[in-house]
């Protein structure tokens, strides 16, 4: 928690406008209701940069990261699959199909504020079912087969999204950037959009954390211990897909966050989901703030897409997990 706050502070101070740390904090403190107005001491543009651009972007990063990491922890737990995450399962791509369709064709507000996340949820859920169907075809749901199905579906849906984006001439650039994952040009409005999902999703996941602990023994075993397996699976999968959908609607496809964060947390604190779940949410926020800080500063003033930064870290980590899984299996056989 402290680490996260400290990261927010540091990240706030870094940016292409080159504001000194003291000014950033001066502006922020003057935003508190009982403080005198900041207008007299600082430029209006500086105030806007800090409060409208940076702060909202960082808070948004925290929330998106928390959603994705939570979803990753949930998928890994309920599927008993260490390689699962919204990205590797293809759910993120599934969500992006729905979101891209709505954004590109300008239908964002047909059903009100939550149109895009809800449509993304529907396509994400359909994708999840398709991936399950594909991997179950040969009986059972083996760890690698599930991820292979996820990757296949993801490749296909990636093409669908690219096609949708190409169909519309005018917004290609912005859409392409969103496609690769980005937190640029977002505002407090997006924070208000994502916050309710996390406020509901986090307690639901904590509520089911002990159930996920029992899942490690296998589904039937969990049932014998008194877990309503079907209901637990349904609720956790729906919650995780919903969290993914809202994160994708806002930040595009930012891969591997849900894979890397819960694993690092697990290494630190052990296998208990009652600790992993809340810490993953915090860790996801932390991870995302730094990834986004890198994305917007390394080539400043040019921005790297956030999805590229997380893939640079996440893909090698994924390879490492796959390797370790293989080694463990070889040892057990």
């Amino acid at each position: 928690m402290l680490l996260l706050l400290a990261s927010i502070v540091v990240s706030l101070s870094i940016g292409s406008a080159g504001l000194p740390l003291r000014d950033v904090w001066g502006i922020l403190i003057h935003q508190l209701p009982w403080m005198p107005s900041a207008d007299t001491k600082w430029d209006a543009s500086d105030i806007v940069i800090v409060t409208q651009l940076r702060l909202s972007r960082i808070i948004l990063g925290v929330l998106v990261g928390a959603c994705l990491a939570l979803a990753g922890a949930g998928f890994q737990g309920v599927l008993r699959n260490p390689l699962a995450d919204p990205f590797t399962l293809g759910v993120a791509s599934g969500c992006s199909v729905g979101a891209a369709f709505m954004i590109v064709f300008g239908l964002q507000a047909v059903l009100g504020l939550w149109t895009v996340p809800l449509v993304a949820f529907v396509t994400g859920m359909a994708t999840l079912l398709a991936v399950f169907g594909l991997s179950r075809a040969r009986g059972g749901m083996n760890v690698e087969t599930l991820i292979l199905s996820g990757v296949i579906v993801q490749a296909f849906l990636g093409a669908v999204v690219s096609f949708i984006v190409m169909m519309s001439q005018d917004v290609v650039n912005a859409a392409m950037f969103w496609l690769m994952g980005s937190l640029s040009a977002r505002s407090w409005e997006h924070v208000r959009l994502i916050a309710p999902f996390l406020i509901i999703g986090l307690p639901v996941m904590i509520r089911y954390a002990q159930h996920l602990n029992l899942f490690v023994f296998g589904e039937r075993h969990a049932a014998h211990l008194g877990v309503n397996v079907e209901r637990t699976k349904l609720i956790v999968l729906v919650t995780c897909t919903l969290l993914t959908a809202v994160a994708v609607s806002i930040a595009g496809v930012v891969g591997f966050v849900g894979l890397v964060v819960p694993h690092l947390i697990r290494l630190l604190v052990g296998p208990d989901y009652r600790i992993i779940v809340p810490l993953s949410a915090l860790g996801g926020g932390f991870y995302m703030v730094w990834a986004d800080t890198l994305a917007r500063t390394v080539l400043s003033p040019k921005e790297i897409a956030l999805g590229i930064v997380t893939a640079f870290i996440g893909a090698p980590f994924f390879a490492y997990l796959l390797y370790r899984h293989k080694v463990q299996q070889g040892g057990a056989a």
Partner: peptide
């Protein structure tokens, strides 16, 4: 209910 049953029936797999 699963929980109710688990208080009375246990399984060693």
């Amino acid at each position: 209910k699963r929980k109710e049953l688990a208080k009375q029936v246990a399984v060693l797999q």
